[in-house]
């Protein structure tokens, strides 16, 4: 029953990737990335059925509570903490409200689409065990990583790069869902750590960059190049 929800979640995650690639308003970008985070948070308990109550073992409360707590934590951090912090950063550092792209939005969207196609074909060839949850899991995660990468490479603004980093991390998170039954604790630790790293990076970079360069555009870093 639950896995039926998994595929729509992943499809929405991929569609959000495309939307992320075409959004030019910074606030909208933050919101969309947050929505993606929330969807990932929802995917976590769906995949994590190994801890669901089974007939033989009966209702075991502790894993269930842990599952719920982690889910809520993921959703809270990805869906509320990060966007709130980012919005504060926008306010404090007085960053321009639009994102600009080095190659333009239409080409980056097209590259995203072609990239998704390549990833989907590539994922078909991967020798993964057939009992994993969905044929979409790996391509979704790789597409998300690719999207994050594209944002990192093509967007000029520092804040957009932070968002790109978060998207990339979302992709890795989806990949982590694959291993969730094998090494649950590792994955969960990784999740939490990743989130903290994201917040740290965001906080530190934006504050430093905003102090030095009010516009927070990474292109200014080019002036450090030796002539």
């Amino acid at each position: 029953m639950m896995t039926a929800l998994l595929e729509p979640c992943m499809v929405i995650a991929v569609l959000l990737n495309f939307y992320i690639l075409s959004v030019s308003r910074l606030k909208m970008l933050i919101v969309v990335v947050a929505i993606q985070g929330v969807i990932l948070g929802l995917m976590y308990p769906i995949v994590h059925q190994g801890f669901a109550p089974t007939a033989e073992a009966g209702l075991d409360l502790i894993p269930l509570v842990r599952l719920l707590a982690l889910t809520i934590a993921i959703i809270a951090i990805k869906g509320s903490l990060i966007p709130v912090m980012l919005n504060r950063a926008v306010l404090l550092a007085d960053i321009r409200s639009t994102v600009t792209s080095v190659i333009g939005f239409v080409p980056s969207l097209l590259i995203g689409g072609v990239g998704a196609a390549i990833v989907f074909v590539f994922a078909q060839q991967l020798p993964v065990s057939p009992d994993h949850h969905s044929p979409l899991l790996i391509p979704t995660s790789l597409t998300t990583v690719l999207t994050g990468f594209l944002i990192l490479v093509t967007r000029r603004e520092a804040l957009a790069q932070v968002l790109g980093y978060i998207v990339m991390e979302n992709g890795i998170f989806i990949f982590g869902l694959l291993l969730i039954e094998a090494v649950p604790i590792l994955v969960e630790l990784g999740v939490v750590l990743d989130l903290f790293v994201g917040v740290f990076v965001m906080g530190i970079i934006v504050h430093h960059v905003s102090r030095a360069f009010p516009e927070a555009s990474t292109e200014h870093l080019a002036s450090l190049k030796e002539l």
Partner: peptide, 8 residues
């Protein structure tokens, strides 16, 4: 974007 959605 609509094209990419359909393509997906």
């Amino acid at each position: 974007g609509a094209g990419v959605v359909a393509f997906f």
